[in-house]
Design a protein around this nucleic acid. Structure first.
Lengths: 106, 106
DNA sequence: CGTGTAAGGAATTCTGACACG
DNA sequence: CGTGTAAGGAATTCTGACACG
């Protein structure tokens, strides 16, 4: 039942310069957030960082939280919390779908 | 009624090296197809090509057609035909939705 | 026609460090 | 803590051309 493609959103293909333009953040900031384990870009064979659209969305959230005076340590927890929530929601959704299908067969 | 995001699919953010990896085509081939007006990457301020996921899908189609022995001239027409079809389908879809909504109000 | 390649230059990205605080 | 910057090097990309055909 997935409606959106999503494969595009999570594919790591965007280089740091483009991410910088899209987010308004400096490359320095982006690299720093990676070192703080807030984002996890992939690397090309030669070591160049590759980001996804999802990473860009996360970076914008990070920038907003930092403006609120929140530390990267705290932001990391928040992001993990969100991830956990999504994972649970997906599982729950999956289970419910199973029950619905079971009922439909009766 | 758009279900898929789509904004990601059409955003021009991928550099030619990554496109080459994703499609299996050489940079030479990709640049040539652009010169033949089969794809239309954007350019960064300094002139670097930027492609979208849609461009990548088109490139794969192009490669398939070329393998079939079709010339770029012909492929260009095919692609235009497809575009035209999609545009018409969207319009038609829009009109039908309008009629349905009109009926629902009766 | 479609593609390979060598050529020279320009733009991008990387890391580690010094700085401020 | 989070960010700016100068430094030197490595990897990427660009264009125009010669080549084959």
């Amino acid at each position: 039942m997935p409606l959106t493609d999503g494969s595009f959103k999570h594919k790591k293909v965007i280089s740091i310069g483009t991410v910088s333009e899209l987010t308004g953040l400096t490359e320095r900031q982006i690299r720093y957030y990676e070192s703080r384990k807030l984002i996890f870009p992939e690397r090309s064979k030669t070591g160049l960082r590759k980001f996804s659209f999802q990473d860009i969305e996360t970076l914008i959230e990070i920038a907003n939280r930092l403006e609120d005076g929140v530390w990267t340590n705290e932001i990391r927890k928040e992001l993990k919390g969100r991830e956990q929530f999504i994972a649970e929601a997906k599982l729950s959704n999956h289970l419910i779908n199973g029950k619905i299908n079971a009922q439909l067969k009766l």
